[in-house]
């Protein structure tokens, strides 16, 4: 890992959303959607990011591509620091693939118009160059060129998602963030898209950040996996270890909750368990309220992310 070039370096990235406050008054409070996060992604890696709704996955991803200005922290992509939230500057280095393939395509534009925008605006290509590049990309994602003159509503989810990939590729980025790229697709189609993305990664030398709530899918495509809970990283490690030998009790709960053929149905925890209130976060570990191993220390202090085995980190005072 040390010899490899870093694709992405994030230090102390956090986001607090102001709440309340009117035209002239200052915001009353803030919701900490993402607590300070630091990590590195070497070039060519797929980092899986998992977590349940409200854990800050999407806020985090939107900060990485410059759609949202971070409250604190720095982002460095391929050695270049990106501190101004300017999507165009980010766009050449990092692209985003959206969850809903249809709603990420403007219904009133042809696919060609959608594909041309990044080539024209980010790379200043002229018309013949653009046409050549679009043909090249469409060939890589197995789409026919006649699709270029059609409108988004004429496509199935799987096709639209491939158009989404094609658009992200058009910017020739170093990194692509895949935000739940297959959760809107049927199982029989999702593997088509995932396998295509794996091939493109090798072909174009890309680095992926793969966000999903589906643990099995994340495990199948990732090199390393990062588990988020309530805006903070609770565990990060090699894909083959994180779910099979979790260190954090939350990761264990997640892995145990996924329905698996051949495992009997048991309630993994009491029904009273709910996420902590983001407006009034408890002190200490955010998982303390649901954790079977909780002690007084957990309720008072926030556990730091510590090394637990090779390339495996967890934020827990009482790891498994």
């Amino acid at each position: 890992m040390t010899t490899q070039k870093l694709a992405l370096k994030v230090s102390d990235l956090s986001k607090t959303f102001p709440i309340g406050g009117g035209l002239f008054s200052k915001p009353k409070a803030g919701v900490r959607a993402v607590r300070p996060v630091s990590f590195e992604v070497p070039e060519g890696e797929t980092l899986g990011i998992v977590g349940e709704s409200g854990c800050g996955k999407s806020t985090f991803a939107r900060m990485l591509v410059g759609l949202l200005e971070p409250t604190t922290g720095h982002i460095e992509i391929a050695g270049k620091a990106l501190d101004n939230a300017d999507p165009a500057a980010f766009g050449r280095l990092i692209q985003y693939m959206f969850q809903d393939p249809i709603s990420s395509l403007n219904p009133r534009k042809t696919i060609r118009q959608i594909m041309e925008a990044p080539l024209k605006l980010l790379h200043g290509m002229d018309k013949p160059q653009r046409d050549a590049r679009i043909s090249e990309i469409f060939a890589s994602v197995n789409l026919r060129e006649e699709f270029l003159e059609r409108y988004p509503h004429e496509f199935s989810g799987g096709q639209a998602q491939r158009i989404g990939i094609a658009r992200a590729l058009a910017a020739s980025p170093e990194i692509i963030i895949l935000d739940e790229p297959v959760s809107a697709l049927d199982v029989s189609v999702q593997a088509q898209v995932l396998n295509l993305m794996a091939r493109l990664k090798a072909e174009f030398g890309l680095t992926y950040l793969f966000i999903s709530h589906d643990l099995a899918v994340v495990e199948a495509v990732s090199d390393r996996i990062m588990v988020l809970y309530f805006g903070s990283v609770v565990e990060i490690g090699r894909a083959e270890n994180v779910f099979s030998a979790p260190k954090h009790p939350y990761t264990k709960l997640l892995a145990g909750s996924a329905p698996v053929v051949g495992r009997p149905l048991t309630a993994p925890e009491s029904a009273a368990a709910e996420l902590p209130d983001p407006l009034n976060p408890p002190p200490g570990c955010p998982f303390a309220g649901r954790c079977p191993r909780v002690t007084d220390k957990c309720r008072a202090e926030e556990p730091p992310l510590e090394a637990m085995g090779e390339d495996h980190f967890a934020a827990c005072f009482h790891p498994l």
């Binding site: 199935s156 199982v187 029989s188 999702q190 593997a191 396998n195 495990e219 090199d223 053929v261």
Partner: peptide, 23 residues
Amino acid sequence: KRLIACVPELGGGRRELAAIPGL
């Protein structure tokens, strides 16, 4: 049979997933 094969199971590690071509 092929639909079941498409569903990734937790604990299998990094792998190529099975797909059903077409729609």
